[in-house]
Simulated scan of single mutants.
Amino acid sequence: MAQSPTAGVHFRRDLYLLSGTFIMVFMGAGAQQAYLVPYLSRVTHWSSLQCSSIVACVYLSMMVFRLGNLRLFPGWSDRRYTIVGALGYLGFTVLMALLPWVPYYPLAVIGAWLWGAAASMMWTGTSMQILRLSDLAGGRHGTGMGILYTSLHAGWLAGAVVLGICYDALPTERLYLVYVIAAAITLPGNLLSAFLPASGRPSRCLPTLAGVVEVLSRPRAQIAAGLQFMAALSYGLILGAFTRYVETEYGTEWIWVAVSLYPATLMALAWVGGALNDRIGQAPVLAGGFLAGSLGLGATVLWHSPWSAAFTAFALGLLNSTVSVSASTIVGKAADPERRPLVYGAVFACRDLGIVTAALGGTALSRAMPMSTVFAVFAVVFLGCAILSTRLSRYASQSL
């Protein structure tokens, strides 16, 4: 599609506003997730299972409301989805700041479910706006989504550093200030979202069970959803078991490879992965990403060194910098605009299921077998995913 000068101006302005919103929201309310479980364990008397379950509730809620929001709020515009969803991120940080005075577990569970519903709303609204803007930019869906994910990871990395410094410096009785700071960082993102131009009344296919089954019965969607699920397992792995493994094997001075190198790689390569999606297609990009993840985990198994752990963190960052961007690109290229929210919700619900699986099963798996065996299993699985990715080229013209 030819791009007019006017379309170009609107693309730039909208893209900067959406990216700016994501930078600030994930610098504050997004990055706090890295400290949520230890924070809860310090300011409440809950068990470790109760603290961990709050994170699981967030992603269970996201999985449900990827499609549930489309049913509950069918008339809301994509712009409103972004604005209201971003406010949900802010609300959760405020609730966590108040938790030392109202340490009620059911209240935290309700807050987690509301945050998950808001997060899925913000992601749906923002992704649909990015895909629409990419239509106007000649169908460069990968580039548009890559820029959005780069903004997200840049915010997350900066926020993790700032909040981490605060978390380490504050005594328990003042630890709530971490969440006060997270809320203060998030608020400018909420203000930026209010300046987004009107996105118009939406024209969406309402989700039904038959509609979801129909989408997931198509090989292109099946492969994208399956790869999302497996990549989410690695996301849970790098945040959980891998971090503990690095600390145990090489000492706390090497935790940075999991805490900093991983998101830094995501930030640096998300835009590159998106641009490559537009140039060479999704199959080679995904195959390369999963192959890198397999090699990274294999390096940790075969070579016991902190530098092999650093390579693993880089490889898993490379993997996850490609998968969600590629899946979003598939939605943009394969689905008509009115079907995109349905297809996006079905495919990305599988990602949320993968994160929940990793959160609930990762610790049990690491206790059942040595970590080197766990990494070897994932290395083989990711190699299989790389091979599966190549099949996407067979269905490059299949519509969703």
Rank of each mutant, 00 (worst) to 15 (best):
A334H: 15
A292G: 01
Y250C: 02
A299E: 04
L286C: 03
V331D: 02
V272E: 02
G332K: 07
G273R: 00
G226S: 10
L196V: 04
T252F: 07
A313E: 05
R220Q: 09
E253S: 14
S217A: 12
S217C: 07
Y250N: 00
G317D: 10
P202Q: 08
L316G: 06
L295A: 13
I255P: 00
E253R: 14
G200F: 09
S234D: 15
Q228F: 10
V257Q: 07
G273D: 07
A309M: 03
T265E: 02
A287M: 08
E247T: 11
I255Q: 12
H304E: 12
Q228M: 15
Q282P: 01
A310N: 04
L237D: 01
L295S: 05
P284E: 03
A225E: 12
L276R: 11
T329V: 02
A315C: 15
G289S: 06
L318R: 06
T265A: 13
A313G: 10
V285C: 05
P284W: 05
G200V: 03
I280R: 13
L295V: 15
T208W: 01
V213Q: 14
G251N: 02
A232T: 08
R279D: 01
I330M: 13
R218I: 09
A221G: 02
A270S: 15
V272S: 06
A335P: 03
P284I: 09
A313Q: 02
C205A: 14
A287D: 05
N320V: 08
P263Q: 12
L266D: 09
H304Y: 05
L319I: 05
P219R: 11
L302Q: 06
F229K: 09
R201S: 11
L319F: 07
W271Q: 10
A270G: 04
A264M: 13
R201L: 06
E249Q: 08
L316M: 10
G273F: 01
A287L: 04
N277A: 06
S324W: 07
G298W: 02
G281T: 05
I255S: 09
S308N: 06
E253W: 10
A258G: 15
L233D: 09
A313T: 07
V323P: 09
G332H: 06
A275W: 11
R201K: 12
A335N: 04
V212Q: 06
L227E: 08
N320T: 12
W271L: 14
R204P: 00
V213A: 15
T300Q: 07
A334T: 13
Q222I: 10
S328M: 15
S324T: 15
A225W: 11
I280M: 14
A270V: 03
A334K: 12
S305K: 06
P207F: 01
P207T: 03
V215N: 01
P197N: 03
F290Q: 05
L297Q: 07
V272D: 02
H304V: 14
F229P: 10
L266I: 10
S294F: 08
L276Q: 08
A292E: 00
P263H: 12
R201T: 11
G293R: 11
E249R: 14
G288L: 04
A221Q: 09
A283Y: 01
G226I: 10
N320I: 11
S203L: 11
T252D: 13
A310H: 04
M230D: 09
D336Q: 13
G200L: 04
S328V: 09
G274M: 10
V259A: 15
